[in-house]
Amino acid sequence: MDKLTTSFRYRTSEEGLTVEEILRDDWKAGKKTVHQMRMDKAVMDTAGHPLEWRTPLEAGTELVFHFKDVYSSYKPDEHVTVSILFEDEHILAALKPAGMAIHPDETDEGGTFMNAVMAHVVRNGGAYAEHIHRLDKGTEGIVLIAKHPIAKALFDRMIEERAITRIYHAEVDGRVKRMRGTLQYPIGRDRHHPTRRRVSPGGQDAITRYRVIERNDESTLVEASLETGRTHQIRVHFSHIGHPVKGDTLYGGSETTDGNYRLIATKVSFIHPFTKELTTIEAK
């Protein structure tokens, strides 16, 4: 797609902050990003005049941040649609259907979640959309999308620092005996399979907390929250304790008629790094 300007507006909340302090101290933007934005005179007032970076600003000053030639390569695809659950200047949250890939394998492909998100962004005059986390193709639920590079960097760091709460509902095979528990097993690659993961002593630390919502004769509905975000984490952990997610045949789960997993990302919650407000988004 054409290289369009990506921009966002921000209103200062504290008296006396400078542009440099907002970027460097509050948002902790990288040195390279700060330097480039200074060279590009990328921060302006609402009249389009570049601002001095070290001049204290009055509380309530509205700033406009521009990113020259910053755009995403996903091809907008109007033939696929997703439900937008939340959107502001910085991020959006959309509901990914089960069975839809999160992004294309090749940049010119369509039909994926990110192609649908990009179509929405372009329709509204934007040019940038990058997912902050992922869901497996067979999983339904909420995905957070950054609408500019600073939001992407901030939310990536929040994921690393476990500052975003992510809640899932999963129907797993069998009757889970304990009403609640913590699954803390390191997860690594399975050397015998190209995409599968496994519990491994040499793997990355992984923590899943759960509580039982409902028990049936052959399955259990659980609510699971992630303290870490390892690939296939919920699927690997519940398979490891003998209760694989229904439909997840890769990890021993029973088959479902549609071939999708009975796993839904139902809720995300975080302190918004730009507004400082507790933000909770739930699947409808």
Rank of each mutant, 00 (worst) to 15 (best):
T6S: 14
S7V: 00
Y10E: 05
Y10F: 15
T12D: 10
G16V: 10
L17M: 06
I22R: 05
K32Q: 07
T33H: 01
Q36G: 05
R38S: 09
K41Q: 15
V43E: 01
A47C: 00
L51R: 09
E52T: 14
A59Y: 08
E62P: 00
L63E: 09
L63H: 06
H66F: 14
F67G: 04
K68W: 05
Y71V: 09
S73W: 04
D77S: 02
T81I: 03
S83V: 10
S83D: 14
S83R: 14
I84T: 11
I84L: 09
I91F: 09
A93Q: 10
A94I: 07
A94Y: 13
A94V: 14
K96W: 12
K96A: 13
M100Q: 06
A101D: 14
I102Y: 09
I102T: 14
P104H: 06
E106C: 05
V117S: 02
A119C: 12
N124Q: 15
H131M: 13
I132G: 10
T139M: 13
E140G: 11
V143E: 11
I145D: 02
A146L: 12
K147L: 11
A151N: 06
K152T: 02
L154S: 03
M158K: 08
I159C: 06
E160Y: 00
E161M: 08
H169R: 13
V176Y: 07
R178P: 01
M179T: 07
G181D: 05
I187F: 03
D190I: 07
H192I: 03
H192Y: 05
S200H: 15
G202N: 13
Q204T: 00
D205G: 12
R209P: 03
Y210M: 07
I213P: 15
T220V: 03
E223Y: 00
S225C: 15
G229W: 10
H232Q: 06
H237Q: 06
F238E: 04
G242M: 02
H243G: 02
P244I: 02
Y251H: 02
G253W: 11
T256E: 12
L263M: 11
A265T: 09
V268Q: 00
S269H: 03
F270C: 00
H272N: 12
P273L: 00
F274Y: 11
T275Y: 14
T275I: 13
I281P: 04
K284N: 09
